[in-house]
Amino acid sequence: DESNKPILLPNESQSFERSVQLLDQIPSYDTHKIAVLYVGEGQSNSELAILSNEHGSYRYTEFLTGLGRLIELKDCQPDKVYLGGLDVCGEDGQFTYCWHDDIMQAVFHIATLMPTKDVDKHRCDKKRHLGNDFVSIVYNDSGEDFKLGTIKGQFNFVHVIVTPLDYECNLVSLQCRKDMEGLVDTSVAKIVSDRNLPFVARQMALHANMASQVHHSRSNPTDIYPSKWIARLRHIKRLRQRICEEAAYSNPSLPLVHPPSHSKAPAQTPAEPTPGYEVGQRKRLISSVEDFTE
């Protein structure tokens, strides 16, 4: 099969070098950035008060330690540790928490760990991170309901609301924008112990962030949302095809390698009803078989 044979790379090609550099910018793992907010007593309706908090309760602090690993920003190499735009020179604080497994990295933009500057009256330095995160974990210690939209931002799609209760338990629920209701189930609340709260809140936030990324990708319907490693695979396959075309153009005697095509017509299947918005969006999480067989 010609399409699977190794090909020689061009010795000097600026377009090839640019493509390789672009490939280096696509990590081999999925990345997520999640905002974390603490809401104190009497702050449920005040964005400024929430963003001005420099610490929270003892249970909130224990919750943070379970979310991930504490890292010092100045020691991080952005090409190895995903920071979601946090500055490593102290502009966004000294520490944050991050978490990773074999296929993804997540960083938490924690408002109480970011510096509260006197010259920044409206807390814009914090909002440029927190307001651009799709998902926020809100530790609501106010005793009042927290409403979506209290923290203004164009991309605040989903809130994971943590409400501490007695007996070391917590109520965990989801809020989302109306255009996200087909992807996020907000109907079920959970009672979770303090011990298990970081794991549950983190998983709910990661799932909500993946759904938000799919939702946000609708602005470019021709580019369905893939995982990062599938995006790398697609980029490599496009690069291979372009090299083959350039080689055939410079030397017409060489065969032009095309991806294999299936001449056999697909079997006719009964027509199915058109899937609704929710089903269609969830299918976009699934990769096409052509990603692996071309």
Rank of each mutant, 00 (worst) to 15 (best):
V88G: 12
I191W: 05
P78Q: 14
R128E: 11
L254G: 15
V135W: 00
V107K: 10
N209M: 02
H262N: 14
I110P: 04
I224E: 07
F155N: 14
K126D: 04
R282F: 09
Y38D: 01
Q203C: 07
P6Y: 05
S288V: 07
L233E: 13
P198D: 00
D223G: 05
N196R: 03
T222L: 06
K80E: 12
H129S: 06
S46R: 04
V107N: 06
L67S: 00
D24H: 05
L254C: 12
T116V: 08
F292Q: 15
H262T: 15
S253N: 15
L174H: 01
G93E: 09
T61K: 15
S3M: 09
R284C: 12
L37P: 00
E181G: 07
M114K: 04
P252H: 07
R282G: 11
P221E: 10
L285G: 12
V192M: 01
P6D: 14
I110K: 03
L73K: 13
N220F: 05
I71Q: 09
E168G: 09
D185K: 03
V279S: 15
C89R: 05
P275A: 13
A111V: 04
T96L: 09
D75I: 05
P10S: 12
S263L: 08
N196P: 01
V184E: 03
I230C: 14
R69S: 15
S44M: 14
K80L: 04
Y277M: 13
E168D: 07
D223Y: 11
S227N: 12
T269C: 11
D145E: 11
S263T: 08
V160K: 01
V81L: 08
D145M: 04
D102T: 08
R282N: 14
T96C: 11
I151P: 02
F108C: 01
D141L: 00
E62V: 05
I137L: 03
S13M: 06
D185E: 05
A267F: 07
T274V: 12
G84K: 12
M180Q: 02
E294L: 07
V162W: 00
S52Y: 02
S46E: 08
P198N: 00
C244P: 12
A106S: 04
G93V: 11
I71W: 04
A211T: 04
D133Y: 07
D92G: 09
A231I: 06
D118W: 06
S173V: 08
L254T: 15
S250N: 13
A271W: 08
V200D: 01
E54Q: 05
Y139S: 00
A49L: 07
G40E: 01
Q203F: 04
N170R: 00
Q154M: 13
Q268C: 13
L285F: 12
A201W: 01
L165K: 02
H258G: 14
G56A: 02
I26R: 06
G84Y: 06
Q203N: 09
V214I: 13
N53S: 02
T293D: 10
V160F: 00
F134S: 02
R123A: 14
Q213S: 06
D24V: 01
E91Y: 10
A35Y: 02
V214D: 01
C244A: 11
M114F: 03
A205C: 01
K152Y: 05
T112V: 01
A231K: 14
V214Y: 14
S142N: 01
A208M: 08
L51P: 02
I191T: 05
H129E: 07
E144C: 09
A205D: 00
I7F: 08
N11I: 10
S250W: 10
A271V: 06
P275M: 12
E272H: 12
A201K: 00
L23C: 08
A248F: 08
T163H: 03
V279A: 13
H122Q: 12
D24Q: 04
G56L: 01
K33S: 13
L67Y: 00
H100I: 14
F292S: 15
D133I: 07
F292Y: 12
D118M: 12
D141R: 00
E245L: 10
N196I: 01
D179K: 03
H215K: 07
C176G: 02
K147Q: 11
T112F: 01
E246V: 07
E294W: 04
H258I: 09
W99Q: 03
H159I: 10
E72W: 12
P78Y: 11
G85L: 04
H159N: 15
L22C: 06
V192P: 00
F63Y: 00
P221Y: 05
N53L: 01
S44W: 03
E62I: 03
N156M: 13
A35H: 02
R123H: 15
L73T: 13
F16E: 07
M210S: 01
P221G: 05
N45A: 11
Q77G: 12
V192Q: 00
G40R: 02
F108Q: 01
G56H: 02
C244D: 14
S193N: 03
H216V: 07
S250Y: 08
Q203D: 05
N196A: 07
P115Y: 03
S46H: 06
H32Q: 03
K5L: 15
G84I: 02
K126H: 04
L239H: 09
I34H: 00
C169F: 09
M210E: 01
H235D: 13
G56E: 01
N53A: 02
G153N: 09
Q14D: 11
Y38K: 00
D118G: 10
P221D: 13
I137G: 00
K152D: 13
G131W: 15
V192W: 01
L130H: 04
S227V: 13
P275V: 08
S46W: 02
R218A: 12
I110V: 13
S217M: 07
V214N: 03
I71D: 11
P6L: 04
D133M: 09
S28M: 06
G143H: 06
G42D: 03
A205P: 00
G66I: 01
D75W: 05
G131V: 15
Y29M: 08
P78W: 05
C76D: 14
H32I: 15
L174N: 02
V200I: 10
G149I: 02
V20M: 13
P6A: 13
K80G: 09
V162E: 00
D24C: 03
K127A: 12
K5N: 14
R238C: 13
Q241C: 04
E41N: 04
M210G: 01
P198A: 12
Y225T: 14
G66R: 03
S13T: 09
P255S: 10
T112L: 00
D120C: 09
L83M: 07
D92I: 07
K127L: 15
Q268R: 12
R18P: 09
D79T: 10
E12W: 07
E278D: 10
R284Y: 09
K33H: 15
V162R: 01
V135D: 00
S187K: 07
V172D: 00
F16P: 06
R69I: 06
L174E: 01
R128L: 07
I34E: 01
G93C: 12
I161C: 05
D101F: 00
R69D: 15
H122A: 13
P6F: 05
N220M: 06
K147S: 13
Y58C: 06
D87G: 09
P226R: 06
H100F: 14
G85Q: 09
D125K: 15
E181Y: 07
L64C: 09
G68P: 01
K127V: 10
